[in-house]
């Protein structure tokens, strides 16, 4: 029975790997030239030459659009997932390792940082108009004040930086707003470029990896060998790099396939709603959105929908295996 179960699991995993490899190969092989719409065959059904998977309402070949959509996934969702894990992992590590008292910063730099934040808020208009000059002046001014204060004993005395509370607060704040609503609001204000979309998804999806990483770090930092490393006088950076991350990163890496699946879904939803990537960037979500113009064109649901479901299921399968 166990063998049968194992065989099934292996078989599922092989299928998942095969599909994901196919998507990556298709993305890499997809033509990078701008597709030419066939305006004489708009919303044309599949299984007819030369558009074997049909065309969308703009006359684009669905097969080519699927391939180019796969490339968009490769260039948008995967970098966004990697950045999400990096950002979440870094913040979670910091919160877990230093907690609310471990990170101590001299008063001088506290005051300089506070002034910098206040200056940014107060001079927001000028920052927008002349970013380089204003930001340069602000940084120089605040840096100088910080340096001057640092010359005094009072200025050098440290204050604890409550990094754990701050990050926990940010996580609660971001998690309290539904992800889609948050991303939609930001994307609706200014239609993002591909890079902008990666940034937007990164800045909104880092909370789960951060929470995982924080929990793993909290557990790991109490281990004997970490205590020993600290006692031996290793710097925080060395402790983190050599003794904590090797144990905590696998926890976050487990999350990678699921994060990619989440971001593919998010990008598809945004493109479907018309607030995602620019209109000229092919994506599975845009293909799906074609159904709103041609409700009878079932092939606009079937092909991109199947590709989306298979990709998501495959990523989930990989994640399960890792667990």
């Amino acid at each position: 029975m166990k063998q049968m179960q194992r065989f099934c699991q292996n078989w599922h995993r092989a299928l998942a790997l095969f599909w994901l490899t196919s998507v990556v190969v298709a993305a890499l092989l997809a033509t990078s030239t701008v597709l030419v719409p066939d305006l004489l065959h708009t919303a044309s059904p599949p299984f007819l030459s030369p558009h074997w998977l049909g065309t969308d309402p703009q006359g684009f070949d669905v097969a080519y659009a699927l391939l180019q959509g796969a490339r968009t996934i490769l260039y948008v969702s995967i970098p966004a997932a990697a950045l999400t894990l990096l950002l979440g992992g870094a913040l979670g590590s910091a919160a877990g390792y230093w907690s609310n008292t471990g990170l101590r910063v001299a008063r001088s730099w506290w005051i300089a940082s506070g002034l910098l934040v206040a200056g940014c808020i107060g001079l927001a208009t000028q920052l927008y108009a002349a970013f380089l000059v204003t930001s340069g002046s602000l940084l120089t001014g605040c840096g100088l004040i910080g340096w001057l204060l640092h010359q005094s004993t009072w200025g050098r005395r440290p204050w604890a930086f409550p990094i754990d509370a701050l990050i926990a607060g940010l996580i609660v704040l971001l998690d309290s707003i539904p992800l889609l609503v948050l991303v939609l609001v930001v994307a609706a204000i200014q239609q993002p470029s591909a890079g902008g979309l990666v940034l937007l998804m990164t800045l909104t999806c880092w909370t789960t990896p951060a929470r995982l990483m924080r929990a793993a770090t909290l557990r790991t930092r109490e281990l004997a060998h970490v205590e020993a490393a600290r006692a031996a006088g290793l710097s925080d950076w060395q402790v983190l790099r050599r003794h904590i991350w090797p144990l905590t990163w696998p926890v976050v890496m487990l999350r990678l396939p699921l994060t990619i699946a989440l971001l593919i879904g998010l990008e598809t939803t945004l493109s479907f709603l018309g607030v995602g990537l620019p209109p000229e960037t092919p994506s599975w979500g845009r293909l799906l959105a074609g159904i709103r113009q041609s409700p009878a064109a079932w092939w606009l649901i079937l092909w991109p929908g199947a590709a989306l479901v298979l990709t998501t299921l495959s990523l989930h399968q990989l994640s399960r295996k890792k667990q």
């Binding site: 309402p57 703009q58 239609q191 209109p279 113009q293």
Partner: peptide, 27 residues
């Protein structure tokens, strides 16, 4: 939100791209 405008823009973009003129769509 206007499909005919988007079709015109995409057709123009593809024809321009064939000549080496990059065109960016702004909806």
């Amino acid at each position: 939100g206007e499909p005919s405008f988007e079709t015109v823009a995409l057709q123009f973009r593809s024809a321009a791209a064939a000549l080496g003129i990059p065109v960016q769509l702004v909806a």
